[in-house]
Design a binder for these strands. Structure first.
Lengths: 208, 208
DNA sequence: CTATTTTTCGACCGCTGGTCGACTTGTTAC
DNA sequence: GTAACAAGTCGACCAGCGGTCGAAAAATAG
């Protein structure tokens, strides 16, 4: 049976608590209390504390990304437009769980590294096939000149994912912008496109 | 005073235990027992369990990287040679602590993500200034044509670090080779170098 | 030697993630 | 109705955790 209402209540509770704490400092009793249920019931729905976190990550990352991918998969739309849609999807789904705002310096060292790793991993593996396909379409159209579409997709995704999640390699907004600018320039020169044609990638770092 | 022998014994003990366990499953008592000292003494040398791990990471990653950097800093050597030396340094210092061999599937989910994150972070921030300087030298020499040396350095380091640490985005050896090949091709076209001139980067994926 | 500081140690503390059996609630059968 | 059984709830309880502490031991000083 497994009442889905309580199941989601537990996830909601953890999500709420994660806004001001790390997974290490949150106890199962605290989750239970916040969810308004007994601690024992937690283990009726989840086998372990970590599994709660994994379910929450699933709920917050997997689903929005899937729907965004569906949008980007419509082959009728031109490649660069689809690419922009895909990137916007990353942007929207990115890191609302693992935001590092207002934490004491050094306090999150271990706390959210699992979330960040899972996110990075998921983002890249989930979007690589789609971006590859988009690039292949661009190659077929003659808009992109490059011999390694899958590699290009992965490179772009890796750099974007790492820079989006700026806890992995923390930098200032200016540095992030400079890196994205460099990536754009590298891509333009590498794929035989005129300078400025890939500027839509810049939309990322705008509100960073 | 802080007897450095005991200090290192503790680090040795943790290093030994990490070969068959994750940081979560290792208890401070276990470290003390393995090191052959009392548990209380641990806290005479380290303020917390996490700080032991950090010191171990420091000992294994920071030092070899520093010496390698010193090598690469000799400005008399031509840029591409220095670049190769720098990359070989990454290769050597990479991931001996966080190797994922022979672990039960799914068992390392949380265990080593902190080590991986710290390594990625450290590798990129430590080497970026050096690689940037090398690229600038290449630009001055006319061997590299690119407008964003720092960005280029960061992009290359991010992609290499993520692919070297293949736990972040696990891929097969073939996929890794393909991605590196694509990066080389992108760099050659992006920096105005003939195809094949950057093949020394390939030495990375050889024994992967 | 004594006096003082540095180092070692394990009992101890609050608390953790997780277990367990008692308990309540819901469902079905008659 | 109610008896029987399953599904769901719960908090006391457990072993073990990271970390503290003061007493003891070892080293150093005068």
């Amino acid at each position: 049976m497994e009442n889905p209402v309580k199941y989601d209540k537990i996830l909601d509770a953890l999500e709420e608590l994660l806004k001001s704490q790390t997974i290490q400092t949150i106890s199962v009793s605290e989750i239970a209390q916040t969810a308004g249920i007994g601690k024992g019931s937690i283990y009726y729905y989840f086998p372990s504390k970590e599994s709660i976190l994994e379910a929450l990550i699933e709920r917050n990352y997997e689903k929005p990304l899937e729907t965004a991918k569906a949008l980007a998969e419509q082959a009728s739309i031109p490649p660069f437009t689809r690419m922009a849609m895909l990137f916007q999807a990353c942007r929207n789904s990115s890191m609302e769980l693992a935001s590092t705002d207002s934490n004491k310096p050094g306090s999150d060292t271990e706390g959210k590294s699992l979330i960040h790793k899972k996110y990075l991993n998921h983002l890249i593996t989930a979007l690589k096939p789609d971006l590859t396909e988009i690039i292949c379409q661009g190659i077929a159209n003659g808009e992109i000149h490059f011999d390694h579409p899958a590699a290009l997709a992965e490179i772009v995704l890796i750099v974007l994912a790492v820079k989006l999640d700026n806890s992995l390699v923390p930098t200032t907004r200016e540095e992030t912008e400079e890196t994205i600018l460099g990536l754009i320039s590298l891509l333009e020169k590498g794929t035989g496109n005129p300078a400025g044609s890939l500027n839509f990638l810049m939309s990322f770092s705008k509100d960073f």
